[in-house]
């Protein structure tokens, strides 16, 4: 995709968000629902969005920031295309979920909370996804992988990379 295309796409998203924010009633109680809406659309809260929300609700920017940074849900950096979430619930902990997390960190060479330089993967720990009977559990995107083992990590990541390469090859072939 050309650079200009990405830019205009970004502008379209921002415009869309501004109009959606404007549709909310100017009530302080709408602050969290608005932030949730933005995050759903953009996968994170960019600084411009925080300003937009503050202007709409007529409250100081820092107040929006103070509220957003309080809650686990909100992130301030874009996640990878395949966000990895490792469950750190009690049942997963007892079944060594931390080993799974470490293995993802090792294989992707990033720490929890970070995104790979190619923006393909990011790693997060989540409190409990409620699949305790399948512990330990990890999610890649929206897919739940139960009964995880350290040795399964590499295979899962490899599969995503292979699929991506395959898709790219096909795209190149299609363009020819």
């Amino acid at each position: 995709m050309a650079h200009e295309e990405i830019l205009s796409e970004q502008e379209a998203i921002e415009k869309d968000i501004r109009s959606r924010v404007a549709a909310f009633e100017k009530a302080r109680g709408n602050l969290i629902p608005i932030l949730q809406m933005i995050q759903e659309k953009q996968a994170y809260l960019p600084p411009e969005a925080i300003n937009t929300v503050a202007a709409h609700l007529e409250i100081p920017v820092c107040e929006v920031y103070g509220v957003a940074t309080f809650y686990n849900q909100f992130r301030f950096h874009p996640p990878g295309r395949h966000p990895v979430k490792v469950c750190m619930g009690t049942a997963c902990h007892v079944k060594a979920g931390d080993v799974i997390l470490e293995n993802f960190e090792r294989k992707l060479e990033i720490r929890e909370g970070q995104t790979t330089p190619d923006r393909e993967f990011s790693i997060e720990r989540v409190a409990c996804v409620g699949c305790c009977a399948l512990a330990p559990v990890a999610l890649i995107g929206d897919t739940v992988h139960g009964h995880m083992a350290p040795s399964k990590v590499e295979g899962l990541l490899l599969r995503i990379r292979i699929e991506k390469e395959k898709a790219e090859r096909e795209k190149v072939r299609g363009e020819r």
């Binding site: 302080r28 109680g29 709408n30 602050l31 969290i32 629902p33 932030l35 949730q36 103070g66 509220v67 309080f70 809650y71 686990n72 849900q73 909100f74 409190a127």
Partner: peptide
């Protein structure tokens, strides 16, 4: 109302704070 992921918001007064758009 969708809670945004803060364990403390299970506490009544914190839950109310978060509905009001405040830090929980």
């Amino acid at each position: 109302f969708q809670g945004s992921g803060a364990f403390v918001c299970g506490e009544e007064t914190a839950l109310i704070q978060s509905i009001e758009g405040q830090r929980g």
